[in-house]
């Protein structure tokens, strides 16, 4: 009866997971490995020369334009993440702690709806809202609050941050909400019972317990924003490119695939490093708890 190697369970599991896994291997892993390979090859005119080189990476790390764009992308992503998570936390807290249980699903539904509506049109509308003659400026001048249109929200990093904070809102709220929901309410009562003030209970009990959710939110917002292509293109008017735009330009417009690949690989590496750092922090939090 003993079946060599794998038991029946494992074999069925592999048989089931094979189709989606092979699909992902073919459509995701193979391309990613290809650009990894490309990033070490030499660029010829309109073709890729099969010669190993570090030159692409040297260029990525030394070129001032690349460095500016890379740093800008990181800064914008970090800023977006900070703003998004900071704005989202009180909402998640409100829904988890103050909304009646029957209404929670409705609140979550309301929060997720805008996320599913056309991304392009949403981004464009922020341009309309924040623009020189946009909703904010025309309303404020119309009401006589300001004389000149505000320019700090115009076609710059700030407008990109606002737009992205809007786009990734549900990504930030949901993980924090989940973490808050898991907190045993009697712990908070215990905190109060042991003589802590409401604020101290929040600081010493709620926040540490919500931390894994906050870190998950940070990751989940940070990763896609660093690769965002549309927002800089539309809102920034193409004048403040981010890393995604640079990759696209190298890959297609300039047809320098090795350099484009090296950029993409470097971006992934940075994302991976940031993710690992956050996962390690998260593990520390989980360890303290258990």
């Amino acid at each position: 009866m003993a079946k060599g190697g794998l038991d029946a369970q494992a074999r069925q599991g592999y048989a089931l997971i094979a189709p989606p896994f092979l699909y992902a291997a073919l459509v995701l892993a193979a391309p990613l490995l290809t650009i990894l390979a490309y990033s070490f090859l030499t660029d010829g005119y309109l073709e890729v020369v099969r010669e190993f080189t570090w030159a692409n990476y040297v260029q990525v790390w030394t070129d001032p334009i690349v460095r500016t764009v890379m740093l800008r992308s990181l800064m914008v992503s970090a800023l977006v993440t900070l703003v998004t998570v900071a704005l989202a936390f009180p909402v998640a807290y409100y829904v988890s702690f103050l909304v009646r249980p029957q209404k929670k699903a409705t609140w979550l539904f309301l929060i997720t709806i805008p996320f599913w509506t056309s991304y392009l049109i949403r981004v464009f509308l922020w341009k309309v809202i924040l623009g020189y003659n946009g909703v904010v400026n025309s309303s404020l001048t119309g009401l006589g609050i300001i004389d000149e249109p505000l320019t700090f929200i115009l076609y710059n990093v700030n407008s990109i941050v606002i737009t992205l904070a809007h786009a990734y809102a549900p990504f930030a709220i949901l993980p924090i909400f989940v973490a808050l929901e898991k907190i045993d309410r009697s712990l908070l009562e215990a905190g109060r019972d042991l003589g802590e003030s409401r604020a101290m209970t929040f600081w010493r009990v709620t926040l540490p317990l919500a931390m894994p959710g906050v870190l998950a939110a940070v990751l989940i917002v940070f990763i896609p924003t660093i690769g965002d292509y549309v927002t800089p293109e539309l809102i920034g008017g193409g004048k403040i490119p981010m890393i995604a735009n640079l990759i696209q330009v190298q890959m297609l417009a300039l047809d320098n695939r090795p350099l484009g690949s090296a950029l993409a690989v470097t971006t992934m590496a940075i994302v991976a490093v940031v993710s690992i750092v956050f996962l390690l922090i998260n593990r520390r939090f989980l360890k303290v708890r258990s």
Partner: peptide
Amino acid sequence: KGGMMGFILLPMVLPEIIVAMSLLVV
């Protein structure tokens, strides 16, 4: 299992531009 599932779920956290570009190149 964890690794295989993680890999399948990877596109959820991968910048879309990288998915698009690498697929395009291939």
